[in-house]
């Protein structure tokens, strides 16, 4: 018989001696992002190792702003993400409600098509999407092009279908007996009761849109309608670019999401794992 407390102590030490260094390693790129953002380009490209933030954040921001008017691209990104999230939540929760609440002709088919085609890579649709929006409609560099095509995302449909089907049917039946219309049942009962789910879904969708890279890269190459990640990426290949400035851009892209992540971690985790359980 070994002593229980000794075993525990040994296990705890082993656990932390693995996890702590690994965690520090994982934090390093994030930390370096902030450090780089505060260093002058000369300091970044110098032979010394810098691990402590410096003081050049303002200067770097000014250079970035001079290079690509980053604030404007951030505004585009925010507007796109907010509108996209709103519409995606609205459309997909309505669809999820229909699939969870009603037995209707073709329900199985709709679910099968959505589930089946979602396993196909995005590449299969991006070319026709591009031809349709850019060439046929001539809508490159518009809000429509940035916001509407990505609304196909069915994550919310599956997510909200799950949420609604877990609610007790009696609630909706009670309202039905009271003569409340189906639309009002949806608005006044189903939606308010799924607030945590809606929050989780909104966070995930906002993040999707905020970080979306390929579609905005294809469809929005005009300076006035560029999203922030695309604008930042466009600097990488240039010779005469301020890397301190680029890192300021990276920080500005990342910090809002980190704040959301820290304060709404519960919803965030729910959003990620809900995709896994289906």
């Amino acid at each position: 018989m070994r002593s229980k407390s000794k075993t525990m102590l040994f296990r705890s030490l082993a656990l932390h001696s693995v996890l702590v260094p690994l965690a520090l390693l994982w934090l390093l790129p994030l930390w370096m992002m902030f450090v780089f953002a505060t260093m002058s380009d000369n300091a970044i490209f110098s032979p010394d190792i810098h691990l402590i933030p410096s003081t050049q954040f303002g200067e770097n921001f000014a250079k970035l702003q001079g290079d690509i008017d980053f604030v404007r691209t951030l505004i585009v990104s925010v507007v796109v993400a907010v509108i996209y999230t709103f519409f995606s939540v609205a459309l997909t929760s309505m669809a999820g409600w229909a699939l969870a609440r009603y037995k209707f002709l073709g329900r199985g088919l709709v679910v099968a098509i959505i589930l089946g085609t979602m396993t196909l890579p995005y590449f299969v649709v991006v070319i026709p999407q591009f031809i349709m929006v850019a060439r046929d409609f001539g809508l490159s560099n518009t809000w429509f092009a940035l916001i509407v095509p990505p609304l196909f995302n069915s994550l919310g449909v599956l997510f909200m279908r799950q949420a609604f089907s877990l609610m007790p049917v009696d609630l909706f039946d009670a309202a039905r007996v009271e003569g409340v219309s189906e639309w009002k049942i949806f608005i006044h009962i189903a939606l308010p009761l799924s607030r945590p789910m809606l929050a989780a879904l909104s966070i995930i969708l906002f993040l999707h849109s905020w970080n979306n890279y390929l579609w905005p890269l294809l469809i929005s190459n005009d300076r006035s309608m560029m999203t922030a990640p695309v604008a930042l990426g466009s600097l990488f290949g240039l010779i005469d670019v301020s890397w301190g400035g680029v890192m300021v851009g990276a920080v500005l892209l990342t910090v809002p999401m980190l704040v959301v992540f820290v304060f709404l971690q519960r919803f965030f985790m729910a959003g990620i794992t809900a995709g896994a359980v289906k």
Binding site: P168, D170, L171, D173, A174, A175, V177, P192, L193
Partner: peptide
């Protein structure tokens, strides 16, 4: 009017 076993009160 119907009264349900689960009460079916709107929780919010």
């Amino acid at each position: 009017a119907m009264v349900f076993q689960s009460y079916a009160l709107y929780p919010h």
